[in-house]
Simulated assay, not measured.
Amino acid sequence: MFLDEHNMAAQVNDIYHDDAKEDAKSVSSPEDHGITAKHESRTFGLPRSVWSIMMTCYAIFFGALAVAMGHDGGAIFVLVVSGLFALMYFGTGFVLNSIGAASRKNQKSEWVEGKFQTQSGPMSFGAIFGQMLILPILFAIFGIAMIIIRHVVI
């Protein structure tokens, strides 16, 4: 038997109160009010461009670090371990996202009138772009700066 928060409370109160079953019967469920459960969106409803820019920025970052620091055996080892860690991190998400992807093709989009609907209110594409991509873009710029610094100093 699947218990939600109302049935769980009735089960706990049943130990202390004789009328807990009557209380549980009087509690309405969300389905009684026309509210249905919303299925998860494993891509968070974001456009493919956000994910591709993020992956490109991380690839630039690791590639730039390999060019700038890849002349030492220890640095190469650290870069390989870090790259494998990033590959595992993003690869696991990719594999989990691909599970049941065919059934999500007809899922309603999170985008409504140019805004992304979040729990705290609608957000514009620019706000989402800034919040999600500022660090990957800065990492890519940092990697390129490391190449320039290495070229100037050495």
Rank of each mutant, 00 (worst) to 15 (best):
F62W: 08
A68D: 13
I60R: 00
A86G: 01
V112M: 08
V112C: 01
G63P: 00
G73T: 15
A66G: 12
S98D: 10
D72C: 12
A102N: 10
F116C: 00
K115C: 05
R104Y: 10
F62G: 02
G83H: 06
V67C: 09
E113H: 07
L96D: 11
H71R: 07
F94C: 00
V67H: 10
Q107T: 08
G74E: 15
Q107G: 07
Y58M: 05
M69N: 07
I76F: 09
Y89L: 09
A59M: 10
N97W: 14
A101M: 10
T92C: 03
G83Y: 09
N97C: 09
A64F: 13
E110F: 01
V112I: 09
A101R: 15
T92V: 09
S98C: 08
Y58N: 07
V112Q: 13
F85I: 04
D72H: 14
A66E: 06
L84N: 03
V67E: 14
A86W: 06
V112K: 12
S103D: 10
G91R: 04
D72F: 10
L65A: 11
A75Y: 15
S109R: 04
I60Y: 03
V67I: 15
Y58I: 05
A75V: 07
S82A: 14
A75N: 15
N97S: 13
L96K: 13
F116P: 00
F61T: 06
S82K: 02
L96I: 12
A75W: 15
